[in-house]
Design a protein around this nucleic acid. Structure first.
Length: 272
DNA sequence: CCGTAGACCTGTGTGC
DNA sequence: TGCACACAGGTCTACG
């Protein structure tokens, strides 16, 4: 569910509520949730920890606790991390009680979400995390970087953009939106994009993500921010979720296909 | 190394 | 109303 703008929104929502607080109680009811360490060891590591800062890296939430302990949370498809006073959600999987009277509640319908509690040097246990590519809103994510990564690749450009090692934080919604804005057909072989097309893609990826953050993310179904609120960017989507409806630019009916194993919406006339 | 299909899980929407 | 099936914001692994 959550892509970069949604995770960024959650971090900004939660920061003022949790930074500087101590975790006084950890309850985990879903054994699938703690990826490392598993079971009671996970609870023990976090209990008593003081949350110094919370930040985002790709689609990961990163809580930096005292002594260098790093608490990572990945929400995958339907995970939520919310601070509410009375959140008896149907799919509550964990609760982190804070010493300021508040708490963090983790809810997840599909149970794909993962958490890690890592001491310095243990980052290798979070394989996806250490392999993340550059942040798309940083200078490291440049035309040269994208071109280098797409060179000689035969996979569809959309599949490559979803690879978190190429760039960290894009998901199905914003990839479709950025490819539309850039006028690039998602089925194109990565290696077939020229300099100008890469330039447009980099520009539109940054623009779409920035605008989505301003609008506090996209609530297509399940997503909620850290305060339980829906996002606002769903009203600005141009193609995602709009297959069979007219292209907002040319009027041609938008096509829905499967590309790189994911549902993909694009305009056959505007995207080449 | 590369590219793709299937797996993981639970629910919702659609068509018959 | 019931049932079967496709699909869902994301990775992982196995396989050719």
């Amino acid at each position: 569910m959550p892509e970069l703008p949604e995770v960024e929104t959650i971090v900004r929502d939660l920061a003022p509520l949790v930074e500087g607080t101590r975790i006084v109680r950890v309850q985990v009811w879903d054994p699938l949730l703690a990826a490392f360490p598993s079971g009671e060891d996970f609870n023990r590591r976090l209990t008593g920890g003081i949350i110094r800062t919370i930040r985002r890296r790709g689609k990961y939430l990163c809580f930096e606790l005292g002594q260098g302990l790093l608490w990572l949370v990945h929400l995958r498809m339907t995970g939520r991390l919310v601070a509410q006073l009375t959140p008896m959600e149907r799919h509550r999987r964990a609760q982190f009680t804070l010493d300021n009277g508040g708490a963090l509640f983790y809810c997840d319908l599909r149970r794909f979400g993962d958490m890690w509690a890592l001491w310095p040097g243990e980052e290798r246990h979070a394989k996806g995390f250490i392999a993340l590519g550059p942040e798309p809103l940083s200078e490291q994510f440049s035309v040269q970087w994208l071109r280098g990564k797409l060179a000689n690749r035969k996979a569809p450009v959309k599949a490559l953009l979803l690879d978190q090692r190429l760039v960290a934080g894009l998901g199905n919604i914003y990839t479709d939106e950025a490819l539309f804005e850039a006028g690039v057909d998602p089925r194109r072989e990565g290696g077939s994009l020229d300099q100008e097309e890469c330039r447009k893609l980099v520009r539109e990826i940054k623009a779409v993500l920035t605008e989505a953050i301003i609008n506090k993310g996209t609530t297509f179904r399940d997503y909620r921010g850290g305060l339980g609120q829906a996002g606002g960017y769903q009203d600005q989507l141009l193609v995602y979720g709009r297959g069979g409806r007219p292209c907002p630019r040319c009027g041609e009916l938008l096509q829905k296909d499967r590309v790189g194993g994911r549902g993909t919406v694009f305009c056959r006339r505007c995207q080449r």
